[in-house]
Design a protein around this nucleic acid. Structure first.
Lengths: 328, 328
DNA sequence: ACAGTCCATGGTTACGTAAACATTGCCGCG
DNA sequence: CGCGGCAATGTTTACGTAACCATGGACTGT
């Protein structure tokens, strides 16, 4: 900056004013400074700027992995919305979901050049009191239960699951079998709980739960077990990828979808409409989740009135051709 | 920091030493300082640190979207590897792939708190001379052609496509049809070019090219067109998702895979093994691509001998059950 | 017991920027 | 013609940290 000032024959303060678009600079001076900047390839130093302002214009995102469709789409939405507000986002990946790792990441957080954090961890870890974010760090939690310590943004998992199960019951199925996600996942548990409560409320038998790990392969394994039961005519899979595995298992075992077995998924990933047959599933609005995260975080950063509690984004059932009334 | 020093009864310099793990601090003093830090909730200021060191320990990633499997997995690998080297990553999403957007992002880059950049843009934009990264910013380009201006890391697209086409020819098919990605994509063009050259080298007829936009839906549309041609017995789709759409189209038109038509995809996404039937596809090692990006970038940042030119990560064909010899 | 050495710690300074205040020169108005 | 006021620019300072050098005390070897 000093070099630019020297070359342009002005003070460094004027350079600063030009680079920030301050109005009190006469046009001729401004052009001189800009020319000097160009010649010297001057680029403002954001570290010094952040030090001066006490702000980084950056939001951190803590997550385990980007490989799940939901995570990557949420992150993308967060990044896009943050960008429109002038914020960049920093990814903080956690190798494995161990408490040590989470603790470590939260500790490192403090040193991170970040004005606030979005935590995307669908695991019970946040629940235990041993794990806590450094105090004073603005935080929003996605897809998990943070008690009442932080604002939470989430898809309305329970309602989505209820819609799925009711849809199958309304078609005339006696009951609905469920392929759940891992027990450690809150989303999985909420979907399973809603499934169970709808069945119980309707006085339907509650079949034993099958569990997968969200992967298509685990859905296939669960599907093989279900395909062996002739009384299983309706299945609700906790995500679309497991539903894909279930489809494959049913197909291999010669059970037709939807004429013999109906299937509903969850997420409405773009591929779901190309499954065989196209999958009836619960649509999640990841973009909206990301948007609300950024909004809530920015409100905190700007010290505007906070909105504690959980912010639920509605879901909706998308009916395609993997569901039908039972054959008999 | 000054407060901590006062409370612990030491100088700020000693506090600095403790927080950086400098060895020349006696254990008792260290504990005192740590206790004072804890009491005051002290957290080192990374802006000041970055200003002092002239380094951010952060890598920027410029991309259009995270929704493609390849991008999100590459980003994840970059993030993971960067983390092990003590680097965080900052996402710089580009709304739309317009030149203006790219220019804008590259200009903003300069002000960004970043030591280097990975550019994940599979579009020809980088090729034009109107778009250039600010000079002096360390850069690695993924999945594109940067001329010889920047080091490039990429999957060996051409070899992967050759393996796919040869596999189909070796099975006895007379020729292979191709569902390509969008013409603006380098990856797509390279795969298409390799497909064509293998056919020409073998003296096979080159059927007209079908194009999609990487989505399953576009694959479905292309598949419908191909399903109408009885002479089409082997299809190479430029990614797995389009292959999924092709499968659906063939199925709806009553053409059996693989007995009547063989199909090969590209990417080997986790779901591909659960398609109906499980898909033969070309495996891409996204994790390795991410790793090499980080390595190359860190070498540049550390002023170690550079490695210009293109670094190709090998691919391999994964044979499943969507391919078979032609029926006749 | 004394000199030399080394280890733990403290004081000073610079990193690049922008806010706050100071200064200069010009204009308009009485 | 002189003075108040304002617009443009300059000067000083602080943001939080760590490198550099200085200092003092303890320990070792003879």
């Amino acid at each position: 900056m000093a070099d630019v000032a020297r070359l342009a024959g002005v003070s460094s303060q004027t350079v600063s004013r030009v680079s920030n678009g301050h109005p009190a600079v006469i046009e001729a001076t401004r052009q001189q400074v800009l020319e000097a900047m160009r010649q010297l390839g001057y680029r403002p130093n954001s570290a010094a700027r952040a030090l001066r302002y006490g702000q980084f214009n950056t939001i951190g995102v803590i997550l385990f992995n980007l490989s799940s469709t939901g995570n990557s789409r949420t992150v993308e939405a967060i990044a896009t919305h943050a960008a429109t507000e002038g914020y960049a986002i920093t990814l903080i990946p956690l190798g494995a979901p161990t408490q040590d790792n989470v603790l470590g990441a939260f500790t490192r957080m403090g040193e991170l050049a970040v004005d606030g954090v979005v935590v995307i961890i669908e695991i019970h870890l946040l629940d235990t009191n041993t794990v806590a974010l450094p105090p004073g760090v603005h935080t929003v939690v996605v897809d998990s239960d943070a008690g009442d310590r932080y604002p939470v943004v989430d898809t309305d998992q329970a309602d989505g699951a209820r819609q799925a199960v009711r849809h199958l019951l309304d078609l005339g199925h006696r009951t609905v079998w469920h392929v759940a996600g891992p027990a450690e996942s809150f989303a999985s548990e909420r979907r399973a709980k809603a499934w169970r409560s709808v069945l119980e409320a309707g006085g339907r038998p509650v079949p034993p739960l099958e569990r997968g790990d969200w992967s298509a392969e685990s859905g296939y394994q669960a599907g093989l077990r279900l395909a062996g039961r002739p009384d299983c005519t309706a299945i609700f899979a906790a995500n679309d990828q497991m539903a894909l595995g279930v489809l494959r298992a049913l197909h291999e075992q010669g059970r037709q979808v939807p004429s013999q077995v109906s299937l509903v998924g969850f997420d409405d990933i773009p591929d779901a409409s190309s499954y065989l047959p196209p999958l009836t599933t619960v649509h999640q609005d990841f973009a909206e989740v990301g948007r609300r995260c950024v909004q809530s975080l920015l409100r905190q950063i700007r010290n505007e009135p906070a909105d504690p509690g959980t912010d639920l984004v509605p879901t909706r059932l998308v009916v395609r051709t993997s569901t039908a009334p039972p054959s008999s």
